[in-house]
């Protein structure tokens, strides 16, 4: 056990149940499984020698499930970190809870914070995490930013960082962020910003290709799900590249070029393309659409009209993110988890 080492775990209890379950085949992720993930993270962090774990509380049974699961845990199941539940004065049921929990975990010494949720959860955590590294695990609808990792593996990586057995500079990277200005309103996105002609925020999700006009991506991976897959299959940009991608979209019925992209779970659609190019950091771009909505990380959040210009700027000032693959590769290279039995005199030849 490494004194002073602390891991934070924020499990967003708000489950993804939006319209993509009706217009597509988006998954249902029950809170009981988030509880299981927290328990697996704790087990791995304990095995990695983490002294303390800070776990979020909620009004929907995730933290309660952790208490019940640990009460039934067998004594032979291995050590756990000392568990501290982080309680807020009042739960709001909104992203404010995530922001406040992250603030509290920083204040109590978390060296790394694992988030269970979707792109929105990471966006909320990023607002208050400062320089503390995040490890975002996917439990949402179609997540481009958090990755799908088995919680046991993720917990091991978090434990290696929290116990200072890997260097933060070697296994984390500063992610990018897209700043949106829409009149007096400010928003940020960690993955993509999409300007569409849909007039109202409505049910939030975007799934109709003919309404999409401009897509700004902080990064674009060919293996992504969601809107950033459009850019990822056409003009990829890595999470660690200095630039992003901007795509001008067109009606697929009339466009010269289309790309088949998985824009929602179960939906691979032809998307009309007019142009795709690098999006340099620090250069504001003004949307050419006169009226519509702006979606951040796949969800319509802002409505704008002719008197409200929309600008999008890429910046390299997002949250610091723990790279699970790099962490465990470093652990393997340095044999951090390998224990070599030292021959005793009796067993020596």
């Amino acid at each position: 056990m490494v004194p002073g080492s602390t891991v934070g775990i924020v499990a967003n209890p708000m489950s993804g149940r939006d319209i993509r379950r009706l217009v597509a085949q988006a998954s249902v992720f029950p809170n009981a499984e988030k509880t299981n993930m927290v328990v697996r993270l704790l087990a791995a962090a304990g095995a990695a020698g983490v002294e303390r774990a800070l776990v979020s509380t909620d009004g929907m049974g995730v933290a309660g499930g952790v208490v019940r699961a640990l009460a039934k845990r067998r004594a032979s199941a291995g050590r756990l970190p000392h568990l501290e539940f982080v309680e807020l004065d009042a739960l709001t049921g909104t992203a404010d809870d995530t922001r406040a929990l992250v603030v509290a975990m920083r204040a109590r010494g978390a060296g790394v914070i694992v988030t269970l949720g979707g792109d929105g959860t990471v966006r909320a955590a990023a607002a208050t995490c400062g320089d503390v590294a995040l490890l975002p695990l996917s439990t949402g609808t179609n997540n481009a930013f958090p990755e799908m990792w088995e919680a046991t593996v993720a917990g091991t990586a978090a434990g290696l960082l929290a116990t200072d057995r890997v260097a933060a500079d070697a296994v984390t990277h500063r992610s990018k962020v897209l700043h949106v200005v829409c009149g007096p309103t400010r928003e940020v996105a960690l993955v993509d910003v999409c300007v569409s002609t849909v007039t109202h925020v409505g049910s939030k999700a975007l799934w109709q290709p003919a309404t999409l006009r401009e897509l700004y991506c902080a990064f674009a991976e060919p293996h992504a799900i969601g809107l950033s897959s459009i850019a990822g299959l056409l003009h990829p940009a890595a999470r660690t590249d200095p630039h992003g991608v901007v795509v001008t979209l067109a009606d697929p019925a009339t466009a010269d070029r289309t790309v088949f992209a998985p824009i929602a779970p179960g939906v691979v659609a032809p998307i009309g393309i007019r142009d795709a190019r690098d999006l340099p950091a620090g250069v504001p771009r003004r949307a050419a659409v006169e009226r519509g909505t702006v979606a951040v990380d796949g969800e319509r959040e802002l409505e704008f009209g002719p008197g409200t210009p929309v600008t999008v700027t890429l910046a390299r000032a997002g949250p610091r993110v723990l790279d699970v693959r790099a962490t465990l590769a470093a652990a393997a290279a340095r044999r951090l988890l390998v224990h070599q039995r030292v021959p005793t005199l009796q067993s020596a030849p």
């Binding site: 319209i19 379950r21 009706l22 925020v201």
Partner: peptide, 30 residues
Amino acid sequence: ATDDIADRAAAFGMPGVIVDGFDFFAVHEA
């Protein structure tokens, strides 16, 4: 007993969605 009533839809083989009941546009769209 479930987190949300919409969760029960999966058990009956149909889509289940949640919308903000204060927002006409959200209800109308779904």
